[in-house]
Amino acid sequence: MENKANAARYYDIHEEKVFNSGHQACPGCGQALAFRYVLNTMGPETIAVVPPSCAAIISGPQPYSSMRIPVYQTTLEASAASAAGIKRALIARGKEHVHAIAIAGDGGTYDIGFQALSSAAERGEDIIYFCMDNEGYMNTGTQKSSSTPRYAYTTSTPGGKPTKKKNLAEIMAAHQIPYVATATVGFPDDLVRKVKKAKEIKGTRVIIILTPCLDGWGLADNASVKISRLAVFTGIFPLYEVENGVKYTLTHGSDGTPISAYLKPQRRYRHLTAEQIDTIQQEVDEQYDILLRRVKCFA
C-alpha cells in the first residue's frame, strides 16, 4: 500500500505548453494524458515523428496541430528510421541540441515498426522513442497486436488472444541501449521524471507508456488513471527502468493486489473463466518475480 500513498502524495510537474487542448482524442483518453506529460516535458526544442495511429489523430488534421513543435507523419513501419533521419540532419546542421522523438502506438512498435526500432537501437541513433502502448490496434477498431495480453478480447481475437504479450522492455534492454523504461499515465510524476532523465542521456532511449484505451478495453470515461494504477499495483505492468541493459530499477510495483481487480472492470476480459484468471495470475507472479530478481541481481 506504500506505493499508493507515495504516488498520491505529490503531483508537481513543470509543464512547457507544447501540447494543447482542442486535440482530437476521445474524452478521457489515456494517451492524451501521456502526450501532455511527454511533450510538455520535452519542451519546444523538439521535432516529433508520428506514424499512423491514434497519435496521428491526436496530432490533428491539416492545417491544425495540437502540438507547438514540428511534427512529421511517417509510415507505420518507419518511425525509428524517420526520427533517426531528422537527428542526423540536425547533427549535420550543427543543431544537435534539438531532440528528435518518435511517438508510435504498440502496433507501430511491437509489430510492423519493430525492425526499424531494433536497427536504430543497434546503431545507437540519438533519438527518444515513446511507445504509446494501448495493447492493440485501437485506431482501426481494436485488433490484436503482439502487445495484446493473453485472453484479451479484440475483434481479431473474438475468443480471446491465445498467446502472451510480447515483452518489449526486455527486448529493448537486450539491445543494451542507455535507457529503457516503462511508465503509465496513472503515475504522472514517475512518467515525467523518466522523460526528464531520458532527455539528459545520449543515444537510443525507449519509454513504453501504458495508455489505457477506454473504447478498446471497455472502460468508463473516467477510468483511465484508475485502471493504469491497478495495472501497476497488480504487477501486470510494473514501472521500472533499465540502464545500459543491466541496471534495473523498480520505480513502482505490485502491492499484492490480485489480478482480478484489474481484469474485472474491463469489458475485454469479461468472458474470462476462473481458470483463465488463475492462469493470468500465475503468469503475472512469475514475470514479476523474474523482474524482482533482475533488480536485485543488478542492484
Binding site: V49, G85, A116, R123
Partner: peptide
C-alpha cells in the same frame, strides 16, 4: 563529409532520406 547511416532495410534507408531532406540537408 557526411553522416552515413546503415539501417536494416531499404525501407528504413528511404524513410531516413526523406526526413533528413525535410530537415534541411
Amino acid at each position: 563529409e557526411a553522416e552515413t547511416m546503415t539501417p536494416e532495410s531499404e525501407h528504413s534507408a528511404m524513410a531516413a532520406c526523406i526526413t533528413a531532406s525535410l530537415a534541411g540537408v
